[in-house]
């Protein structure tokens, strides 16, 4: 009772108010610091992160064929595109795309299309050379992708993701 009267008389916070807030804030920061390890332990561990690059030899893949590699536990489509597929991919008007992206930005060399084979809707693996646009078709919820792996129709919001990769030789890439 008396302390509230004191604070009222001075028209502001008392030293006790300051101590309450400071102690409370200190406790909150301490609690957050204690909780963080219990959240962060769920994130990828060091051994999972250590497996985050994959090398692929492209010389074994003839034109018009593709392989599915594994990178970070996910399928990666590596496709040697035919001239027709490249032409189709480049001919599409950007205005027709739900997620506009020119084909040239999705490949380093036009004949090699490399992308994560995981549907951007809910993570299923699309089937190759199917669907209404000659590219990929996801059987789970009906998303159609074109020969550049761009979403054309269906519930998926984005194009198939292009992973970071580099040509370490003429016919050899490293993903990741």
């Amino acid at each position: 009772m008396s302390s509230t009267q004191v604070s009222g008389a001075h028209g502001g916070a008392t030293r006790r108010d300051f101590l309450y807030v400071a102690a409370g804030a200190f406790g909150a920061v301490g609690a957050a610091a204690a909780v963080w390890p219990f959240i962060h332990q769920m994130n990828p561990s060091a051994d999972v992160l250590a497996l985050s690059s994959t090398e692929i030899d492209l010389s074994q893949i003839p034109e018009g064929m593709g392989i599915t590699a594994v990178w970070r536990g996910k399928p990666v489509f590596v496709r040697h595109r035919s001239a027709k597929e490249i032409e189709e991919a480049q001919a599409v008007a950007l205005a027709d795309l739900p997620d506009p992206e020119p084909d040239a930005k999705r490949v380093q060399k036009p004949q090699w299309l490399i992308m994560v084979g995981v549907c951007t809707h809910l993570g299923c693996v699309p089937l190759g050379q199917q669907g209404d646009f000659g590219g990929w078709f996801c059987p789970c919820h009906g998303s159609h992708y074109d020969t550049s792996g761009r979403i054309r129709r269906g519930p998926a919001p984005k194009n198939l993701e292009v992973p970071p990769y580099t040509f370490i030789e003429e016919n050899r890439i490293r993903i990741g």
């Binding site: 959240i39 769920m42 994130n43 990828p44 561990s45 999972v48 985050s52 970070r72 536990g73 996910k74 995981v118 809707h121 809910l122 993570g123």
Partner: peptide, 24 residues
Amino acid sequence: NLFSAVPYVGDSIVTLLWGGFSVD
């Protein structure tokens, strides 16, 4: 993957749930 629909932090949430880059 439903959680990947969350704006901005969706992918980080999914990675946290998985403890990796896919269900494993």
